[in-house]
Computed example of a mutant assay.
Amino acid sequence: MNKMLTAKNALIVAGSLLVSAFGYANDEPRSLPVASVVNDTIVDLMDVHNIPGMAVAVSVNGTPYYFNYGVADQEAGVPVTTDTLFELGSVSKTFTATLAAYAQASGALSLSDPASQYLPALEGSAFDNISLLELGTYTAGGLPLQFPDSVNNEDDMIAYYRQWTPTYAPGTHRLYSNPSIGLLGYLTAQRLGKPYAQLMETHVFSALGLEHSYLQVPEDAQANYALGYSKEDEPIRVSPGVLDAEAYGVKSNTADMLAFIDANMDSSAVDEPLREALEATQMGYVNMGDMTQGLGWERYAYPVSLDQLQAGNSMEMVLEANEAEQLQPPLPADKDVWFNKTGSTNGFGAYVAFVPSQRMGIVMLANRNYPNQARIEAAHHILTTLAATP
Rank of each mutant, 00 (worst) to 15 (best):
T345A: 01
L199A: 02
R174H: 13
L187R: 03
N2E: 08
G284H: 09
P79C: 01
P371H: 07
S150E: 14
T165N: 04
G141L: 11
V151Q: 00
N346I: 14
I12H: 02
A207D: 05
Y160W: 15
Y186Q: 08
G62C: 03
R275Y: 06
A311K: 11
L183M: 15
A247S: 14
A103H: 06
G209S: 03
V151R: 02
L5S: 01
G142S: 04
K3N: 09
D113K: 06
Y118V: 09
L383F: 08
T254W: 01
D233Y: 12
F86H: 06
T165M: 07
A76D: 13
D334V: 07
L295C: 10
V58G: 00
T345L: 06
T165Y: 00
L210S: 01
D73W: 05
M200K: 07
N253T: 13
L306Q: 14
D290C: 03
L199V: 11
A378T: 12
L88H: 09
G15R: 13
A245F: 15
M288D: 03
L175F: 06
Y196V: 13
A189T: 13
L210A: 00
S252M: 05
E211Q: 13
A115I: 06
A374K: 08
E154C: 01
I181H: 04
Y138G: 00
E377G: 04
L111D: 07
S110C: 11
A387T: 11
Y186L: 15
P218A: 02
N9H: 12
L331Q: 13
P240R: 10
G228P: 11
V217M: 04
Q293M: 15
V204D: 02
F339D: 04
S206M: 07
Q146F: 12
A100C: 13
L306I: 15
S213W: 11
N253D: 14
R162Y: 08
A388D: 15
V78E: 08
A35R: 05
G296R: 10
M54H: 02
S59E: 03
A223H: 12
D149E: 15
L383M: 15
S16A: 09
Q308Y: 09
E134W: 05
Y302I: 06
G142V: 12
Y302M: 05
E316F: 07
A311M: 11
Q117R: 10
I51D: 00
V304D: 01
V304R: 01
Y24I: 01
L383E: 01
P235V: 13
V56T: 12
T384A: 01
G349E: 03
L18C: 09
E325C: 03
M315T: 14
S92M: 13
T98F: 04
L208T: 12
V151L: 04
S267V: 12
A7F: 03
M291S: 04
A21T: 14
V60N: 00
E272P: 06
N2L: 07
P148T: 15
P329S: 06
